[in-house]
Amino acid sequence: MNELLTIENLHVAVNGNKEIISGLNLRIGESEFHVVMGPNGSGKSTLALTLMGHPRYRITHGRILFMGEEIASLTPNERGRRGIFMAFQQPKVVDGVRIKDYLTLLLTKVKGMDPLKTGKIIRKTLREVWFSEDILGRYINEGFSGGEKKRFEILQALLLKPKLLILDEPDSGVDIDSLSLISSKLRKMHGEGIAVLLITHYGRILQHVDPRILHVHILREGRIVMSGQEELVERIEQEGFRKIFEECGCNE
């Protein structure tokens, strides 16, 4: 299996010197499915944002390789163009920017698509994630419900077809039906060869995904303290992090 993403001994600081990621190692092979779980504040979103190149998170140590190349010095858009996509835990409102204009721009500028062909693809994909065409005239995430925001992130991933799809809690605030929809879209995208790095607190988002393929990691204070397979998800749901950390001696 070719390696897609390699994170070696990563240290990340924010606001001056506060270290949030402390010596994290992770390898994701092409079209693998990885799940990262961990208590609130353990650094999951920080990891995702750092991979995407958020200017506020500073890499103080270590390397990130994507398809064999160091990406730490690349801008977020260069990373995006190389095939990394991150669905935000809290998608941002961009006031005044109409979704139709935005999605058209993404397809033409980022994917190099013929402007005449974008409309059809956008409308088809909208329906796939249960949006009506009314949404095209609205502003990005403005007035969206929590669940709508998450479906809009999935919509963009479906349109952009990345190589690595990072999802930061795509299931939080989402109703049962939408959860099932998002889960099946994950299966679909993964089935098309997209590698997935899924951050979540609950196993339910994995309902449509083949459990045998899962690589599960537990993050604690900015470091992966345990890795395993699908049964780790169940264990977390049953026992909670405290107990697991006590048993493994991870608290030391």
Partner: peptide
Amino acid sequence: EEELFYLMSRGLR
């Protein structure tokens, strides 16, 4: 910054 980052992360310059 957050809005700019959101759009840029999708590949827009």
